Amino acid sequence: MMDAWLVDLDQVAPTDISAHYPEGLTEEELRRGAEFVHARAAHRFYRARLTVRRLLAERLGLAARDLRIHYDPAGKPYLPDQPDTHVSWSRSDGLLLLGATETGPVGVDVELVRPSTTSLDVLAFVYPGVPDSATPETFFHAWTLLEAAVKATGRGLTDGARDVDLDFGPDGAVTLRGISGHGALPWHGHTALQPTRQDSPWAMTAFVSRELPPVTVLPWPDRARDPARAPAPATATAPAPEPARARAAGLMAS
């Protein structure tokens, strides 16, 4: 069974994750954080990496300092001491989406919904299979599914997009038909809009794995005692969103 969390990094106080940012971060992560021009972006990066460690460590019954995260040559994260646990995460500005499962490779993606007139052009450049009949409403479903699929296979957009087979249906619906060259077992992909407290009220989330949907996405930190600070858990499913939300889903994240 997959566990998934949608984290509002701007709601994660430093005391929630570490007394000091350097504690628990690798030298490479500290170096990457120092490269950000704006302090807010650096803090979000640090909080994302520390939150990933904390949530995965809690799931595995470990202390965060004992959890080792490595990356393969393509940049796909893995846990060398827990080889049966597969992980993936994605960040869009102040949001972090994390998925973990023992059923096989997983890829996740999150994108804040924002307006752009070039969304389909960007998608078609990466994925030439976009049909002429596609509408702006399809962009976020397709883009996040594509990103999640190449993360699941560990190939990245440049090398892996050609292996992904998307089906563009009516009313903006996009589904994953399969991924070629990665075993006989079927892949399953699903998307869902999630409410946020960022500068965009909605984010699109996508999951690709060997598991059938649904996937329940849990908000973190748990603000259940203060409903105004966090949305209720949402379930990721494949069907197209209702019309008003479908129109929002056609806007591109910057």
Rank of each mutant, 00 (worst) to 15 (best):
R225N: 09
A64T: 09
I69G: 01
P219C: 02
A240W: 07
A234H: 12
L123S: 03
R223I: 00
V130F: 10
W220P: 00
P227C: 02
T118L: 10
G189N: 06
R155W: 03
G107A: 03
D72V: 12
G129L: 04
G129W: 03
D167M: 11
D167I: 07
D159S: 13
T26N: 03
L218R: 15
T153I: 15
L95Q: 07
P239S: 12
P231F: 02
I17Q: 09
T101H: 02
P195G: 08
Y78H: 14
L96R: 01
P231L: 03
S209K: 06
P136I: 07
R155V: 05
A253Q: 04
P219Y: 00
V12F: 00
G169Q: 15
P227H: 02
A57W: 05
P105K: 01
R247K: 13
G178P: 12
A57P: 06
P14T: 11
G129K: 14
V126E: 09
L56I: 10
D132V: 13
V52P: 00
H38A: 11
Y71E: 11
G172I: 03
T216G: 02
R53C: 06
A230E: 06
P221H: 04
G169S: 05
R225W: 09
L79S: 03
Y21D: 04
L96S: 05
A246T: 12
T153D: 01
A161S: 15
S254L: 11
E28W: 05
M1D: 13
Y21R: 10
T175Y: 06
A42C: 15
V174D: 02
G33H: 02
G33M: 10
V122T: 12
D163F: 12
Y127R: 09
A224C: 07
R114Q: 14
F168M: 09
Q198P: 03
T51E: 01
A203M: 06
A34L: 06
A13Q: 15
G61W: 04
R53L: 08
L97G: 01
D72M: 10
D226A: 08
E137K: 09
R59E: 09
V174L: 02
